[in-house]
Amino acid sequence: DAEELIELVERALKEGREIILLGVRITSEEAGKWFIEWIRRFL
């Protein structure tokens, strides 16, 4: 579910982890915020 995915992304970014989803590397909080917004819009 989308909320679970958002929580995972937020937690990983807070822990300083690198996330790779759909071939996109997300390493900064700014990118994470963009990704979370995208999830909310399309899922």
Rank of each mutant, 00 (worst) to 15 (best):
D1K: 15
D1E: 12
D1L: 15
D1N: 15
D1R: 15
A2I: 15
A2T: 09
A2L: 15
A2D: 03
A2R: 09
E3I: 13
E3G: 09
E3D: 13
E3T: 11
E3F: 14
E3P: 06
E3M: 12
E3N: 14
E3R: 14
E4W: 14
E4V: 14
E4D: 09
E4Y: 15
E4P: 05
E4I: 14
E4H: 15
E4R: 15
L5H: 00
L5M: 08
L5F: 09
L5G: 00
L5K: 00
L5E: 00
I6E: 03
I6C: 10
I6L: 05
I6S: 05
I6F: 05
E7N: 13
E7K: 14
E7C: 12
E7A: 14
E7G: 12
E7Y: 11
E7W: 13
L8N: 01
L8Q: 09
L8M: 12
L8I: 12
L8P: 00
V9S: 00
V9T: 01
V9Y: 01
V9H: 00
V9D: 00
V9G: 00
E10R: 10
E10N: 13
E10Q: 13
E10M: 11
E10I: 15
E10L: 13
E10T: 11
R11G: 06
R11A: 10
R11Q: 12
R11M: 12
R11P: 02
R11L: 11
A12K: 02
A12P: 03
A12E: 03
A12S: 06
A12T: 04
A12W: 09
A12H: 04
A12Y: 04
A12Q: 02
A12V: 05
L13K: 00
L13A: 02
L13M: 11
L13H: 01
L13I: 13
L13Y: 06
L13T: 04
K14P: 02
K14M: 10
K14N: 06
K14H: 08
K14W: 09
K14L: 14
E15T: 05
E15D: 12
E15R: 03
G16S: 05
G16M: 09
G16H: 08
G16E: 03
G16L: 06
G16C: 11
R17V: 11
R17G: 06
R17T: 09
R17P: 04
R17E: 05
R17S: 06
R17Y: 09
E18S: 07
E18W: 08
E18N: 08
E18T: 12
E18H: 11
E18K: 06
E18G: 04
E18D: 06
I19G: 01
I19M: 03
I19Y: 02
I19A: 04
I19K: 01
I19V: 05
I19C: 06
I20F: 05
I20K: 01
I20G: 00
I20W: 06
I20P: 00
L21G: 01
L21R: 00
L21I: 13
L21V: 14
L21F: 05
L21W: 03
L22R: 03
L22T: 01
L22Q: 02
L22M: 09
G23C: 07
G23Q: 08
G23K: 05
G23E: 05
G23F: 09
G23W: 14
G23D: 05
G23L: 12
G23N: 06
V24S: 00
V24Q: 03
V24G: 02
V24H: 10
R25D: 04
R25G: 08
R25Y: 12
R25T: 12
R25A: 13
R25I: 10
R25N: 10
I26N: 03
I26Q: 02
I26M: 04
I26G: 01
I26D: 01
I26P: 06
I26T: 06
T27A: 14
T27R: 05
T27S: 11
T27P: 02
T27F: 14
S28D: 13
S28Q: 02
S28W: 07
S28R: 04
E29A: 12
E29Q: 13
E29L: 12
E29H: 10
E29Y: 14
E29M: 13
E30W: 08
E30R: 12
E30P: 07
E30S: 09
E30T: 08
A31T: 15
A31W: 11
A31M: 14
A31Y: 07
A31S: 14
G32I: 11
G32T: 05
G32K: 05
G32V: 07
G32Y: 08
G32C: 05
G32M: 09
K33P: 03
K33Q: 10
K33S: 05
K33R: 14
K33A: 11
K33Y: 11
K33C: 09
K33W: 10
W34P: 01
W34Q: 14
W34N: 12
W34K: 15
W34G: 06
W34Y: 10
W34S: 13
F35T: 02
F35M: 07
F35K: 02
F35S: 01
F35Q: 01
F35V: 11
F35D: 01
F35G: 00
I36F: 04
I36P: 01
I36H: 02
I36Y: 05
I36R: 03
I36D: 02
I36W: 06
I36N: 02
I36S: 02
I36L: 06
E37R: 04
E37I: 11
E37H: 05
E37V: 10
E37Y: 09
E37A: 09
W38G: 01
W38Q: 05
I39G: 01
I39F: 06
I39A: 01
I39K: 00
I39Y: 07
I39V: 12
I39L: 14
R40D: 08
R40Y: 08
R40L: 12
R40V: 09
R40H: 08
R40Q: 10
R41N: 14
R41M: 15
R41Y: 11
R41H: 12
R41T: 14
F42R: 06
F42E: 05
F42Q: 10
F42D: 01
F42K: 07
L43E: 05
L43D: 02
L43A: 07
L43N: 05
L43I: 10
L43K: 03
